[in-house]
Structure formats: structure tokens, C-alpha cells
Design a protein around this nucleic acid. Structure first.
Lengths: 204, 204
DNA sequence: TTGCCAATCCCTCAAAAACGGGATATTTTC
DNA sequence: GAAAATATCCCGTTTTTGAGGGATTGGCAA
């Protein structure tokens, strides 16, 4: 069984690297590559590969959005996310948007092959490293309400409760309540640690 | 003139990609590769390439430190920094530690060749993108003193002035002064915006 | 040697945040 | 239709901060 593989990544070096890793593999057929989301989509109008290796960061559109769009239009294509770092939030979002696997860019050829073969059969591939991160992330998963997100953004912007209240047309007491809830959710003891944690978790 | 090139990067895909990009170039001789700082250093004991392509992020040691070490031991080797993103602070530090150039991982083959050839002659290569970032960074360059960095870290950790003072064996008034200076340097109006800005500028 | 800068410490006062409650209305979900 | 989540508001008290000052020491460089 031969699987055709397409790759979307804005780094030539990575495209070349993967091509080089896969070129002598019997089970792999090189469908082509794109360096941005737009040319990936136009390629898919003419030809559907079995598997797409998709970088999460691209100039015109994030891999996360592209993944969603591709899966909506072509549900039969299997997508493997690619990224340099173990970024908790990205992996989750990529999987939520229909990716079947996630591979780090330091993967070995064997891992990559394993991922492609599994995913092409409709299964899911997550390397040990990735699934460890994913598990950790789920434990510490923080869900913010719409209002809490707004308040958090404005706190990070340096506004006081009164200023935030004015901006959102609510009383400063309400802002204070949201603030308390944010501190509780992030297990932060004050504004400084709240912003640090939220920033590192990429809420802001 | 033939230049021998060695590469240090913890991502196989990138190593493969660069090898693939360079393999048919007449002026390039492939000296070898390493996936971590330690094996790079042990390679250099036996053989010195003309140019080292060095990733900034590696498991055992940052490219920034490795760059410094290599240049101290083998000043004749020219180093080109490699990274995925245009990270202001890293580029500067890499150049400060003796790198002769900086290339983004989305560089084309032509750019890479140009960089290697220029750098091997002792010149400096910075792609347009990179030098733009560097210039922008210099404008908004914020220099913190040792103490200010320590205080900033602890503020981000959620400690109060008194707690920070206890930790650093200084009075809380002193901490307050450092805090004021931090606010001024970052042009932040309060702790929340200070931490946000510092976090986004990767000071913490 | 004469500055400059970093680092240290002190003061006051007002503003803001943190902490501890409690309370009500409206959605959403089960 | 009841329960849970969300959003709204209020109180009082204590702690922390922000914004002004001013002052001393030691090191380094012009």
C-alpha cells in the first residue's frame, strides 16, 4: 500500500528535510508541497493526497485554521500537525480541528513513517512526548468565560478596575469579582502572577 | 574555493533539509552534523569546518552559549545562527557572542548559499528580514541591570515587595525603587502591563 | 578627579488590589 | 422545572502599589 503525502510548511528547509527523509521509502509517494495555506488549498482542488503534513505556523493562515478548512472540504484527507515545540494549546487545537496526528520536527524518520502509516489507516498518532504534554495540559485546562477573557485582556493592558468598568459598562465591583475569579482559576496570588501565567499559557 | 559546512540542530528534518539544499552545490563540502552541543564540541576537537550552521535552541545548551564557547576555542570558525522565528533578543545575543550571520529557517537555497559564502570570507550576513528586526529591536532596546532582572522575575512570580526584599536581603523600599525603574523602562503604567510587556519581550 | 550609574535606603500619601464575605437576576444545561 | 453557570452588584478591612520626593555608597570611565 502506497500513501501519497503532501506537505505544507513555510520553511524550505523543513520541506527539503522531510522530502529527503521520505524519498527512499517504498510506501510513500510525494504528492507535492506548499509554502502557504492558499497554495495548499488550490493544490487540493485538483488532487487529494492521502496524508498532509501541516506546519502550525504559516504566514497567511495558522495551521489550526487551515486544518479545519481542509477537513471540512475534504474529510477523507488525513492531517498530521507539525511543529518545532511542544506547544500545549496548539496541539489540542489542531486535534480539535480534525488532525489525526501530531509530530515534532525533531522526529526521526522512523517516527515519521510510523505516523504516516497509522494515520493513513484512519488511526491517531501522537508521539510519546506530545501525548505527555497533552495529558499535562488537560489537567491544567482553564476555561474562561467571555467576560473573564475581556477583563483579563484589559487588566493586561494596564487598566484599573474602574477604567475596565467604564469600558465594559459594568460596575468596578463586578470587575473586581471577575478579577477574583481569574485569580482563582489561574491559582495566581496577585495580578503579576496572573498576567505571567496567562501570558505563558497564551491567553494574552 | 570550497567551504566545508557543519551543522548543529536538534531537528533531523532541518539537518536533512539543509543537506538536501546544499548537496549539489559545488562550493560546499559537507563536514558533518550534530544534534546537540556536546557532540558538536567533540567533533570540533578532530576537525574544523569553515562554517557552522547553528540552531539557537538545543536540548543540552543554547546555541547562544555554544556559539560563545566555539568562538573562544576556535576563533577561525565562522558561525551562522539558525532559527525559526525572528526573535529579537536571540539574534542580538548570537551576534554578540561571535556569530557572523543569522539565517531564518525559511531561507531559500540562494540565501543560504549567499550567507555561507559571505561568512566564509569573514564578512557578516544578515538577511533583510533579520536586520529589520534587529534595527527595530535596537530602537526599543531595554537594558536591565542585574538587580532589576532579579526583581522583575520575582514580581512575575507573584511576590510582594516585602517578600522580594526578604529573598534578596534588601529592604522593601529598595525593591520599590527597582520596581519604579522597571515601570519607567518598560513605559508600563502598572504591574499588569509591566508583566505583559516583559513577557512578550521575553524578559520572563 | 569628577562625574555617572547602579544599588541601597528612607519618607508620605493616595489609589488600587486582595480578601472575606453576601446577594440577585439571567441563561444554559440537565 | 430544577440546578448550575454566568453576570451583575455591594460591603468592610487590610495589604500592596504607584507617584512624589530625597539621600548615601561604591565602582567605573572619561
Amino acid at each position: 500500500m502506497t500513501n501519497s503525502v503532501f506537505i505544507v510548511d513555510d520553511h524550505y528547509m523543513v520541506i527539503e528535510g522531510i522530502r529527503s527523509l521520505l524519498q527512499n521509502e517504498k510506501g510513500i509517494e510525494w504528492a507535492g508541497h506548499a509554502t502557504n495555506a492558499a497554495s495548499c488549498l488550490s493544490f487540493l482542488q485538483n488532487q487529494l493526497p492521502d496524508v498532509i503534513l501541516m506546519d502550525i505556523s504559516m504566514p497567511d493562515k495558522s495551521g489550526i485554521d487551515l486544518c479545519k478548512e481542509v477537513k471540512e472540504k475534504y474529510p477523507s484527507v488525513f492531517i498530521i500537525g507539525l511543529s518545532t515545540f511542544n506547544q500545549q494549546s496548539f496541539i489540542q487545537k489542531m486535534m480539535d480541528n480534525g488532525a489525526s496526528g501530531y509530530v515534532l520536527k525533531n522526529a526521526t524518520q522512523a517516527e515519521l513513517m510510523e505516523a504516516i502509516e497509522l494515520v493513513a489507516k484512519g488511526k491517531t498518532y501522537l508521539s510519546e512526548e506530545v501525548s505527555k504534554v497533552l495529558r499535562k495540559q488537560n489537567d491544567a485546562h482553564i476555561v474562561l468565560t467571555r467576560r473573564e477573557k475581556e477583563v483579563l485582556e484589559l487588566i493586561a493592558g494596564g487598566l484599573t478596575n474602574i477604567e475596565i468598568g467604564d469600558k465594559l459598562f459594568i460596575s468596578s465591583s463586578t470587575v473586581d469579582t471577575h478579577r477574583k475569579n481569574l485569580l482563582a482559576k489561574f491559582q495566581a496570588k496577585n495580578t503579576a502572577s496572573l498576567i505571567r501565567i496567562a501570558s505563558q499559557m497564551e491567553f494574552i
